[in-house]
């Protein structure tokens, strides 16, 4: 029985904008198990990034975490609700026990400091090293870990002297500098070329194995999911549509949205006669559709879907779906 490292329970995040309340995340619950790579998949605006940021209260105004619990089970057996911690306490966890890697390597590094300084700083903040100088020394090892050639010299480089792939390696380096228990990678390869993407994914897998860390991978690319994750959470319009292992999701998708999504992606290794597209557009989250949020685009929608919100049900072991058909 795998033990969870994070339990998200009924998480709600709303954005209070001038246009109205954007219900970015509504009643999201799922677990992240120790040592796994969990992929959070969905289209633009489905709330996958917001979910990942809400874990450590990284939601900025006008957003607010309205309700819910994020239970974090530490290695020593103690449990904390991350949403109840104050600024000081959560900052100790963020970047230390739970680290982030963001999408755009070009903007997530400060152009004014050397990469060594930035890695050193991340360690110094969390008291892993006494001062920045020691941190820069340790940074050489970290750059070696993330497979940057010639780390002794690279440590003194400024971000603009590195290529996109190298920068993303540095960002990953900052992420793993404090040996985190959970690594949250938010679209880590979207800004990169395919060949570089393959290298970065390989690196993340490698590091995960080595440190026995848990990875939460946020992506819209189903190919990346199939190649790196063990379990998948499919999100649609701020709600969880389906949860399952990759084999369950890819070979036996249950939610009509998952089915449609899989049919819309061209697989370069298969012969595709016709891609299937999903009619309509993603709903506006200020006034989301009543009942199941997917019903206006769903080919199987019936009266019940328009009225009742479907519960997340376990159909087979580990395979959950929120749909009235099951």
């Amino acid at each position: 029985m795998p033990e969870p490292i994070i339990e998200i329970k009924n998480l709600r995040v709303y954005f209070y904008t001038y246009a109205g309340v954007v219900k970015a995340i509504e009643d999201v619950s799922f677990n992240i198990y120790r040592g796994e790579t969990l992929a959070l998949v969905g289209e633009t605006g489905c709330g996958k990034s917001v979910t990942s940021r809400a874990l450590t209260q990284l939601i900025e105004s006008p957003g607010r975490i309205v309700s819910g619990q994020v239970l974090y089970h530490r290695d020593d057996g103690s449990t904390v609700d991350l949403l109840k911690l104050n600024d000081e306490e959560i900052r100790e966890i963020r970047g230390n026990e739970i680290a982030y890697i963001f999408q755009d390597p070009h903007s997530s590094l400060d152009p004014l400091y050397t990469v060594g300084y930035q890695i050193g700083e991340a360690m110094e903040v969390h008291g892993k090293v006494k001062n920045i100088k020691e941190g820069i020394g340790r940074a050489v090892n970290i750059l070696r870990e993330v497979l940057i050639p010639d780390p002794e010299n690279r440590v003194r480089n400024y971000p603009h002297e590195l290529s996109g792939g190298m920068k993303q390696r540095v960002v990953i380096g900052i992420g793993i500098a404090n040996n985190p228990r959970l690594l949250i990678a938010d679209e880590p390869t979207t800004a990169l070329d395919v060949t570089v993407q393959a290298q970065i994914l390989e690196l993340i897998n490698e590091l995960k194995r080595k440190y026995n860390a848990t990875v939460l991978l946020i992506t819209h690319n189903l190919g990346v999911v199939a190649e790196t994750a063990q379990r998948v959470v499919v999100m649609y319009a701020g709600k969880v549509a389906e949860i399952g292992s990759i084999d369950q999701i890819f070979h036996n998708p249950l939610h009509p949205y998952t089915v449609a999504l899989l049919r819309a992606v061209p697989n370069p290794l298969k012969k595709i006669e016709k891609l299937e597209s999903i009619p309509g557009t993603v709903p506006n989250l200020i006034t989301p559709p009543k009942g199941c949020r997917f019903h206006p685009r769903c080919p199987f929608a019936e009266e019940r879907c328009r009225k009742e919100v479907p519960e997340l049900k376990e159909i087979e072991p580990g395979h959950w779906v929120a749909c009235h058909r099951y």
């Binding site: 209070y16 904008t17 001038y18 246009a19 109205g20 309340v21 200020i286 006034t287």
Partner: peptide
């Protein structure tokens, strides 16, 4: 932003 503020309250359900 003004356009939204002007919207009749009854229409959009909850307003900001």
């Amino acid at each position: 932003s003004l356009e939204f503020k002007l919207k009749k309250k009854s229409k959009g359900g909850e307003s900001s």
